[in-house]
Design a protein around this nucleic acid. Structure first.
Lengths: 246, 246
DNA sequence: CGGTCCTTGTGAACGAACGCACAAAGTCGC
DNA sequence: GCGACTTTGTGCGTTCGTTCACAAGGACCG
C-alpha cells in the first residue's frame, strides 16, 4: 500500500526522484505497453515486458517501483493502467507544442516525422534564417523568419525547441530560444550548447553514434577472436546480442 | 557493457579496456580538437578542452589517460597528436562504408548529411523496399531494391548499416543486414531489435528524446521553484546549465 | 477456507562512473 | 643549473546504477 505517497521508493531521498537512468527507459516501456494494449493484451508480467524492452526483469520492476506499486503479485501489471501511470509520470497527459529551427534536410524530416505528433507532441511552428526558405510550406506549416521566433514561441507557450541548424548557428539559435522562454532543447547540431541553469538540453549527434559503432567494429576486428563466451550483459554502449521475441 | 572485461583502472593504460562512458565522449573531444587544429591552436590544456566539451577537467584527463599518456605536464596536449591518437582509438583512420536502408524523409536527410562523410564514413549504398523509390537518385546514389542488399553489402565490405524504415519493417531489415555481414547497426526506427551475439546496435529515437524532455519540463513545472542542491545533480539525463565558452 | 503457486517489490551486494585532491613530471625564468 | 610554476596522471572516497535473491502479497484450486 502506501500508494498515496511514493516516498518508500527503493532509494532514499526519493520524494520526487525518479533516477535519470529510469526516466530514459520509461518511454520505451510506454511504447511497448501501448503496442500491447493495441493488440488486446490486458495484463503483462515484468518478465514479458522486460524481454520486449531488452532489459532484465528486476531492472524493469525497480524502474516501475519508482512510480508506485502498480502491479498485482501473482498476476502482473494491468496494461491500460500502467500506460496511464507512465504517461502521467512523463508528463504526456498534456499537449506539448514544439518549434523546430532550421528547415534543411533534417528539419524537413523532423517536421514530417509522425512519431512526434503521436504522443502528445505537436509541431507548432517552423523557423529558418534563410530568406529563401521562409514562406515555404512544410506539412501545412509555413516556415517563419527568425524574427518571428520570440513572439510566436511566446504566444504558443512552446516550452520545447528543436535545433536542426548547422553547427555554427546552433548557439545563437539556442540563445534566442531560451530568451523566448523555451526551457527544453533537443539539439541535432554537432555543437556543445551553453545554456543558463534550469534549461535542459539533450543532443542527438549522428556522427558521434557512427563513431561509437566504428570503435566497436575496430575493437572486435583488431584483436584476435574473443573466445571467452563471457555473456556480455546488455549494456549501454552498444547492445550486443539480444534475443527477445519482439 | 560491451564485449570485453577490462583490467582495472587507468593504470593499465594501453590495455584494451576503455570504459563505455569514455568511448561515448571521445568523438566529442575529437570534434573539438579538430576545430582547434583548424583554427591553428597547437596545444590545449585539459581545462580548456574540458570546458569546450562541457565536462570536468578531471574527467577529461581520466578519459584520455585510458588511451595512453599523451600529454605534457606543465604544458597540455598537442592538438594534432591527440587528434591522431583519438582517431586511431576510435578506428577512424580507416574508411567505413555504410549502407542506409529506408529512404523516406529521414533516410533522405541522412544520405545528404555531411557529417557522415566528413569523418571516415562514406555513404556507399541506399536501399528501399518501395519499388517507387528504387531507382531514384539521392546524392549521386541510386536507390537499390532490397534484393540487392546482400550482394552489395558483401561486395562493399560494409560493416555498418543504418535503419531508417518504419518500425514494422525494422526487425526484418535488421535480420537481412546481419545475414549480409553487417555487424554494427544504427537504428532510427522506434523498435527494439533482436540481434545475435557480436552485433552492435545503437538506437536513436526522436520520440524518446522528446519524452525525456517532457519529463524534465513537468518536473520543473509541477513543484514550484526548486531551491537548489536537492535537485538531481547535473547528470546524464539532461544537461542543465552549461556555461562554457564554446 | 486453507494450501499452493505465482509474481511483485525491495534489501543488500556488487560494479561502474564521477569528482577531489595531490604527487609526479616536466617547462620556463633567471 | 636551479627553483618556482604549471599541468598532467591517478589513488581514493562517493555517488549512481544494476543484479541477485528472497520475503511479502495476492490469486486460484480443491
Amino acid at each position: 500500500m502506501t500508494v498515496s505517497r511514493r516516498a518508500t521508493g527503493p532509494g532514499r531521498a526519493r520524494g520526487r526522484g525518479v533516477p535519470d537512468a529510469t526516466v530514459a527507459r520509461l518511454p520505451l516501456y510506454l511504447r511497448i505497453l501501448r503496442a500491447l494494449a493495441e493488440q488486446g493484451t490486458s495484463t503483462v508480467s515484468s518478465e514479458e515486458l522486460a524481454a520486449a524492452a531488452g532489459v532484465k526483469s528486476a531492472k524493469l520492476r525497480k524502474d516501475l517501483s519508482y512510480l508506485g506499486s502498480y502491479g498485482t503479485r501473482g498476476v502482473g501489471y494491468d496494461v491500460a493502467y500502467l500506460v496511464y501511470q507512465v504517461s502521467r509520470e512523463l508528463g504526456l497527459t498534456q499537449d506539448w507544442p514544439i518549434v523546430i529551427v532550421g528547415i534543411g534536410n533534417l528539419g524537413h524530416a523532423l517536421a514530417n516525422y509522425g512519431g512526434f505528433a503521436s504522443r502528445g507532441f505537436r509541431v507548432a511552428a517552423l523557423f529558418d534564417a534563410d530568406p529563401r526558405r521562409v514562406g515555404e510550406l512544410v506539412e501545412d506549416h509555413e516556415v517563419l523568419p527568425m524574427g518571428e521566433l520570440a513572439p510566436v514561441v511566446g504566444e504558443l507557450g512552446a516550452a520545447i525547441g528543436v535545433i536542426a541548424t548547422p553547427a555554427g548557428a546552433a548557439q545563437g539559435v539556442c540563445d534566442r530560444l531560451v530568451a523566448a522562454g523555451v526551457r527544453s532543447i533537443l539539439n541535432f547540431a554537432p555543437a556543445v550548447l551553453a545554456v543558463p541553469d534550469g534549461v535542459a538540453v539533450r543532443k542527438v549527434d549522428l556522427s558521434i553514434e557512427l563513431q561509437i559503432l566504428a570503435f566497436h567494429e575496430q575493437r572486435n576486428a583488431v584483436p584476435g577472436p574473443v573466445p571467452d563466451g563471457a555473456g556480455s550483459g546488455p549494456g549501454e554502449l552498444v547492445q550486443t546480442g539480444r534475443r527477445s521475441r519482439a
